[in-house]
């Protein structure tokens, strides 16, 4: 009976250990994350497409981010504002803005970064591209995902998600109220 008790304890520690480890797990294999907007529907905006690659890495390991912009425009300038999540550390030179001179001989405009983080999470490199067209400036926003460690989004929701007895899921937040007795 004592052996059974010890065995139960070991099993439970093992199970719990797995659960706890999952929330702090590290990524064993590096995986490449790729994406492109080429050929995909886009809402109105600057005529710019993006293709990106980022590597999923462990904590404190550098992730290589390769970004390529393409546009049918052959002259003028393309500005890119760069906004990197605060828990991502840029390795090497950091920019918050880049300007490309557009040329008929160039099809792609590249941006390469190296980042790392000491915290698990799904982070973003947010890019706002701008081009000056016939009717003034047009813009288009992109977000390049960077997976560190467990790669889970850490953003806290301010809503409370609950299941109604009728089966619907509800995302609930508090109203600002005023109350007055009607005479």
């Amino acid at each position: 009976m004592r052996k059974k008790l010890i065995l139960n304890a070991i099993i439970m520690v093992g199970l719990t250990g797995n659960i706890l480890a999952d929330s702090n797990s590290t990524v064993d294999n590096n995986r490449t994350v790729k994406g492109t907007t080429i050929g995909k529907y886009q809402k109105p905006g600057a005529p710019i497409d993006i293709t990106y690659r980022s590597t999923r890495v462990k904590l404190n390991e550098p992730s290589d981010i390769n970004i390529s912009f393409s546009t049918p425009l052959k002259s003028g300038e393309m500005d890119v504002d760069i906004n990197i999540d605060k828990d991502l550390k840029v390795i090497g030179e950091a920019y918050n803005k880049i300007t490309y001179s557009l040329s008929p001989n160039q099809k792609e405009y590249n941006l390469n970064l190296r980042v790392s983080s000491s915290k698990n999470g799904l982070y973003y490199i947010r890019l706002l591209t701008k081009i000056n067209g016939v009717n003034g400036i047009k813009t288009r926003a992109f977000a390049v995902p960077v997976y560190i460690g467990n790669g889970k989004l850490q953003k806290k929701s301010h809503q409370l998600v609950m299941k109604a007895l009728g089966g619907e899921n509800l995302s609930i937040s508090k109203a600002e109220e005023s109350v007055e007795v009607i005479k």
């Binding site: 809503q159 998600v161 899921n169 509800l170 995302s171 609930i172 937040s173 508090k174 109203a175």
Partner: peptide, 18 residues
């Protein structure tokens, strides 16, 4: 209007209890 990242939960605003 639902939250597609939370099992399509319908957005709801609630008053206090009274």
């Amino acid at each position: 209007v639902v939250d597609n990242t939370n099992n399509s939960a319908i957005y709801t605003m609630q008053s206090s209890l009274f």
